[in-house]
Simulated assay, not measured.
Amino acid sequence: MSAFAQVLASGVATGCVYGLVALSFVLIYKASDTVSFMQGELLMVGAFAAVGLHAAGVPLALAGVLAVLAVALLGAALERLALRRALGQPHLVAVLLTFGFGLVMRGAVASVPAATHEMHRLPLPEQVLVLGGIVFASSHLAVIAATALLVLLLALFFRHTRAGLALRACAEDARVAALMGVPVARMHTLAWALGAGLAAFAGLLLAPISFVHLDMGLVALKAFPAAVLGGLYSLPGALAGGVFIGVAEALAGLALPEGYKDAVPYALLMLALLAFPRGFGGRAA
Rank of each mutant, 00 (worst) to 15 (best):
R278V: 04
T34G: 04
A199I: 07
V93T: 13
V12W: 09
L268G: 02
H160I: 03
Q89S: 11
V109W: 04
Q127P: 07
H140E: 12
L214E: 02
Q127H: 13
T98C: 13
V104R: 06
A3V: 14
M270T: 14
A70I: 00
T161W: 10
R106I: 09
L66G: 01
R278L: 15
L103P: 02
T189M: 15
F201I: 00
K261Y: 10
S24T: 12
G11P: 05
F48R: 02
F25C: 12
P113G: 05
H160C: 03
L74V: 09
A142P: 08
L66E: 02
L62H: 04
A227Q: 00
V182P: 07
I245W: 00
V184L: 07
V135G: 13
V143F: 01
V35Y: 04
C170Y: 09
L129A: 06
G40L: 04
G107I: 02
L194D: 00
A56G: 03
E118W: 14
T14H: 12
V51A: 15
P208F: 13
R84S: 12
P257F: 01
R278F: 06
E118C: 00
L179Q: 11
A200F: 07
L218P: 09
S111K: 01
L122D: 07
V212L: 01
G203Y: 03
G195V: 08
K261D: 05
G133E: 02
L103H: 04
A56M: 13
L204Y: 07
I144M: 12
M38V: 04
V45W: 02
P59Y: 03
D33P: 06
A55M: 14
G132S: 07
H117R: 15
S24N: 08
V12H: 05
Q6G: 08
A76Y: 05
D262G: 11
V68D: 05
V93Q: 11
V247T: 09
T14E: 13
A255T: 13
D215E: 13
Y260E: 03
V26K: 15
G231C: 06
H140K: 11
G197I: 11
A63F: 04
A108F: 04
V264N: 03
E41L: 03
T98H: 07
L205Q: 01
P257A: 02
A207S: 13
L179C: 10
F224L: 04
A272C: 09
S10F: 10
R186M: 11
A174L: 09
A178F: 05
F280K: 01
L53P: 01
L229E: 05
L83Q: 06
A22Y: 09
L69K: 11
V58M: 08
A263T: 08
A49N: 00
L8H: 12
E172L: 10
A200Q: 05
V151S: 09
E249K: 05
L165C: 04
M216Q: 10
L256N: 10
T116I: 11
